[in-house]
Design a protein around this nucleic acid. Structure first.
Length: 444
DNA sequence: AGCTGCGGGTCGG
DNA sequence: CCGACCCGCAGCT
């Protein structure tokens, strides 16, 4: 996405005490700013004291041109003529300036599984990536999708999650930790300053994309629904009992699940350390509950072979009947009874396939597809699906087109991407099934 | 139950 | 000193 951001520093307009102690008077921090004491203990912040470093920033943050600010600077750009569209999958060393009105930015959302990290700086929220939960058997569904579950954010929940089984083959789950930042997890930083929310990402994710939060929630609810209503619920309960006793889940029919859209994985060059080649036959179910691939023990038993989500790039994928604009016009968290609860994952997931550019995220399906070229804010493929109710043409696109966050001052022309980190930045408006969506994109 | 944010604390570089 | 990480707590959904 291209966002022509024009930042002009007007030091005279900024009180010198603005970044000093206490709540900055000249910096009305709305919404979910960090209310506590301003510790600013980071010595690096001192470097921002020199206003000269921010003189006349005149470019788009995503172009990498506006890189002179750092999240640790005492003073950040104060006058931004145009804010960025919210980035759902920020990757690499990117910076964005969001409007403080942006609900996603306010909530520090990311579709990566990011957990809070204490950096002892109440002004700057730091989050680190948890990676992705994969199937220890490296199984695939019938259409070649891999299992990329979203790691639970809560430590306890994550431990619990790892004791569970692959929803596709009941194999063991494995947490693929993120090491994209010098061996450490990718970190994201959020800072509220005035009417802007500054975002900075450090590191490039070296793992596939997990489910989005919504997908994970949907999967859970679907599993719940199925557990509650399916004839096999008794068996499930028994299995759970057994699991609780033994820590192992007996083989049972695969649960419905939401899988991350394979097209959503854009492998950077350093993505080569993951997963085995069991998915070479994408159209075959390589579900290997019965054929567990021996893996290196440990959390990251990486094979070093080309990752499945990397090879997808070279796979010509059969276009989906749904087409790129088949996302539900009226997204809903609740799966339709008698439908989603019995749908396989590939049916559940919205088919944001058919991307012309394999290096583009599926989250940009609309952005780079038939709709997105008109409308810069791309619509994420992460929206919860309602397959039995195909959206009318232009439905989601229309929503996306009208989905301009209010504070956006103008539309970037063409909606082309301009990400310095690999041309994969796009606005992703996947939070379509909650109030946020409608807050962000009021019906007109 | 799980997510999110805060903050005290530890540890290693 | 800094960054990563652990843990508990609190508020929220």
């Amino acid at each position: 996405m291209r966002c022509d951001i024009h930042v002009f520093l007007l030091p005279a307009l900024r009180p010198a005490a603005e970044s000093g102690s206490g709540t900055a008077v000249g910096s009305p921090c709305r919404g979910s700013c960090f209310p506590r004491g301003l510790r600013c203990g980071n010595s690096k912040m001192l470097k921002g004291a020199d206003d000269s470093i921010m003189e006349h920033e005149d470019s788009a943050s995503q172009h990498g041109e506006m890189t002179s600010w750092d999240i640790n600077d005492i003073k950040l750009p104060q006058h931004v003529s145009q804010t960025d569209w919210f980035q759902e999958w920020p990757d690499s060393y990117v910076k964005h300036i969001y409007s403080s009105e942006d609900k996603n930015a306010q909530r520090h959302h990311s579709s990566w599984a990011m957990r809070n990290t204490n950096n002892h700086n109440s002004r700057i929220l730091k989050k680190s990536c948890l990676g992705v939960v994969v199937c220890g058997n490296d199984c695939s569904t019938l259409d070649g999708r891999k299992i990329y579950l979203r790691p639970a954010i809560c430590d306890k929940a994550r431990q619990k999650q790892q004791r569970k089984c692959c929803p596709n083959c009941n194999g063991p789950l494995r947490l693929l930790s993120c090491r994209g930042h010098g061996g450490y997890p990718v970190t994201n930083f959020w800072r509220h300053e005035g009417q802007f929310i500054f975002f900075q990402s450090k590191g490039a994710h070296d793992h596939p994309r997990p489910e989005t939060k919504l997908e994970a929630e949907a999967r859970r609810s679907i599993q719940k629904a199925k557990t509650a209503f399916s004839p096999s619920s008794l068996r499930q309960k028994r299995a759970q009992e057994i699991e609780s006793l033994t820590g192992a889940m007996p083989t049972q029919e695969p649960l419905p699940l939401l899988l991350s859209n394979p097209d959503a994985h854009i492998p950077p060059a350093n993505f080569r350390r993951h997963l085995s080649k069991s998915s070479q036959e994408p159209m075959l179910s390589s579900c290997s509950g019965q054929f567990p691939y021996p893996r290196t023990a440990g959390e990251d038993g990486r094979s070093g072979e080309a990752p499945a989500w990397g090879r997808r790039l070279s796979l010509s994928r059969a276009p989906r009947a749904q087409g790129p604009c088949s996302l539900p016009a009226v997204p809903s968290t609740a799966p339709p009874p008698q439908h989603c609860a019995h749908l396989s994952a590939q049916h559940i997931l919205p088919g944001t396939k058919g991307s012309r550019d394999p290096f583009r995220s599926a989250t940009g399906a609309l952005g780079d597809g038939s709709c997105g070229e008109k409308f810069p804010p791309t619509y994420s493929g992460s929206c919860l699906p309602v397959p039995p109710c195909p959206a009318p043409e232009g439905g989601p696109c229309a929503m996306a087109s009208g989905a301009q966050p209010r504070p956006q001052l103008s539309l970037p022309a063409g909606g082309s991407e301009g990400d310095s980190g690999g041309g994969r930045q796009q606005v992703c408006l996947n939070y379509c099934n909650n109030d946020m969506f409608f807050n962000l994109y009021p019906l007109r």
